[in-house]
Design a protein around this nucleic acid. Structure first.
Lengths: 230, 230
DNA sequence: TTTCAATACGGGAAATTTCCCGGGGTAGCT
DNA sequence: AGCTACCCCGGGAAATTTCCCGTATTGAAA
């Protein structure tokens, strides 16, 4: 593949050939981070940021108009409107050959499991050093994946929890959102047009799924896993 | 003041005079953001990043060894080890002439009030556009402050809540940390070597201070205000 | 047609949270 | 000495949460 080898060739001709650079995309809701990361990638010389978006929805619109399809897409996990998981699913379905890289804030963020499942070939923390990002991108482009063994997240824990990966329905997610508030269950029931018993049922199943025994634990776990928007 | 005027002069001589650039510092625990923001500031041509640190503690060590004292310091709010508020307090005490700029993730982050009180002359969201950052830095350097009227955070709300600004003691903060967990109050009481009544008292005063009526609300509010580390 | 999963609902009781009432003490400030 | 702020503790009762016991409907799968 031409592009693949082009990377090494380019080093000496950085300004000669635009299309030879590896096209990448970035999706992150923090514009300051988005733009400066874009700048950093460009400073690596071999990458060309062809699309930037603040969330998955915006990406969907922008990627169509993109002259060069990105071969690597950097995806933030926590985003409003359309988050990382949904975006990853959409991308890996529509652009299966595209390499997806998850960018997360904290390593105890359980959603990275879902990101891998949604088609990401790597996950990186925002705490990582730029050198590692460069190394990671290089490896992803060459090998198709990157395993950050130096990262504080280890794969074993991931694969281990892969089995016990949980499924949360839309209704449950809606309830979770209400549960993460100062409301009582009675008030939540009224807001959802459901009986208190039904709410009780949702609570119980979610307690089991998230392995907690109180509503506080439930709310905190939901936040940690990015199931709700604070 | 020489440096103040130098800014306009420099534009055409970017590489000639190092010390004429405005020296800035950045503190942020996300290394990727730290480094790329640094890169971006440098790309603005008139700024020179003289110190970078991952948290307040690291800054304390690095700033001593710094050849040129930064005149503007960009401070992330949420950091491990030593957070933005503590760092701002320390800086505004030790380097009173230094301009402090708070960098926050979300605008409902109540801690920005505390950041202003701790001596910051501006607050910026990470969602802001680079252009606004540049404009803000320019204004801060010239006028000494920046009021982001275009930002979604408005000053009125800040000044309004300034009065009703709350004080949280160390003990209360310790309790809050325990309250943000799956533990019952009885278990928390045991862990803190206190009576359940005492815990009950802390709960009550914190309910009043944070204006909530349930433990879930308390936990969520504590997280929003950055009073606890998740 | 049966079985199964998902969804919605109800009564009752135990545990916990929440909210009253009350009582101490120390430390610093004026 | 009074005042204020912080810290510590107890009894009792109402409200809410948590956990049992169930039933019923629906639609999809076997």
């Amino acid at each position: 593949m031409a592009i693949l080898r082009a990377k090494w060739y380019i080093g000496k001709h950085t300004n000669t050939c635009y299309s030879m650079k590896i096209p990448v995309g970035i999706v992150d809701d923090h514009q300051l981070f988005l733009k400066s990361l874009s700048l950093m990638l460009k400073s690596f010389k071999v990458y060309d940021v062809v699309v930037e978006a603040l969330n998955g929805k915006e990406l969907q619109e922008k990627i169509e108009l993109c002259p060069v399809q990105p071969s690597i897409m950097l995806l933030d996990v926590n985003m409003p409107v359309m988050n990382g998981i949904e975006t990853a699913k959409w991308l890996s379905n529509k652009y299966p050959q595209m390499k997806l890289v998850a960018l997360s804030m904290n390593d105890n963020d359980m959603v990275i499991i879902d990101m891998i499942k949604a088609g990401c070939c790597a996950y990186l923390l925002k705490e990582t050093h730029p050198d590692e990002l460069e190394k990671a991108l290089q490896e992803i482009h060459m090998k198709g994946y990157y395993n950050a063994d130096t990262s504080n997240v280890n794969f074993r824990r991931l694969l281990q929890s892969e089995k016990e990966s949980i499924q949360i329905t839309e209704k449950e997610k809606a309830f979770l959102q209400y549960a993460c508030s100062d409301l009582t269950y009675k008030e939540i029931a009224a807001l959802m047009f459901l009986s208190e018993r039904t709410i009780d049922g949702y609570r119980e199943t979610l307690f089991a799924k998230l392995k907690v025994q109180s509503r506080v634990g439930l709310a905190l776990e939901a936040i940690k896993r990015g199931l709700v928007t604070l």
